[in-house]
């Protein structure tokens, strides 16, 4: 597993928000206070990891063998919605502290395209690699269960999910920090609010662009 590559790519070079444009809504909406931003980021990270953990095997071991790839979107979005609900219930029951910190952000996560995005991305990587190694019958996780060449293992998928989530958290917390100052600036009226936030994000995106050149 190319750990360092995944870390650099997910945190910086292919940052979900500032490079791939996923999860922009919460990025703009829940970034007024750093504490709220951190809560949102961690909630997203948690759901991303679990999503990768669940959707990858379902796609590989259920949808692909049954040739039901076309149900992918419905299945994924339902899984995500169900997972978010379950996570909420579990947190409420077993960890009220964590629930009070993350709970209010969890329902927002369902409609966050970063989550569905990461699930799709992992699947895409899987199938792209499969196309590359089409001559090979290479079983990793499956051990003979399936004939699909999986270049990305479950471990890599989950790890990518974690790192992409942390990349999201990084971006949103940074933006929240900047907005603490930017929102207080006295700018022309039409620029107040979203336009200023966009301009701040613009400069952050420029900074992150540098990482893509490593």
């Amino acid at each position: 597993m190319d750990v360092l590559g995944i870390i650099i790519a997910a945190l910086f070079a292919q940052n979900f928000v500032l490079v791939k444009f996923m999860g922009i809504c919460p990025f703009l909406g829940v970034s007024k206070k750093p504490s709220a931003a951190l809560g949102m980021g961690l909630a997203v990270t948690a759901v991303m990891v679990i999503t990768c953990l669940v959707t990858y095997p379902i796609y590989v071991f259920v949808l692909l063998p049954l040739k039901l790839e076309y149900l992918e979107i419905i299945v994924f979005i339902l899984i995500i919605a169900a997972l978010v609900q379950m996570l909420e219930m579990i947190l409420k029951k077993f960890s009220p502290g964590l629930y009070s910190a993350l709970g209010i952000y969890l329902p927002l996560v369902t409609t966050n395209c970063a989550i569905l995005g990461v699930a799709e991305l992992v699947i895409e990587m899987t199938t792209v690699e499969e196309a590359h190694f089409v001559h090979r019958v290479f079983n990793t996780v499956a051990g003979g269960f399936t004939d699909y060449g999986m270049a990305m293992s479950l471990g890599e998928a989950v790890f990518s999910g974690l790192m992409y989530g942390l990349g999201f958290t990084l971006a949103i917390v940074l933006l929240a920090g900047l907005r603490q100052k930017v929102d207080k600036l006295n700018v022309a009226k039409p620029l107040r609010g979203f336009p200023m936030t966009m301009l701040t994000a613009c400069f952050m995106a420029m900074a992150f662009y540098i990482f893509t050149l490593i």
Binding site: C25, P26, G29, P107
Partner: peptide, 10 residues
Amino acid sequence: MAQEVKDVAA
């Protein structure tokens, strides 16, 4: 916008 999302969430 966030307001609306929040409403949905709530």
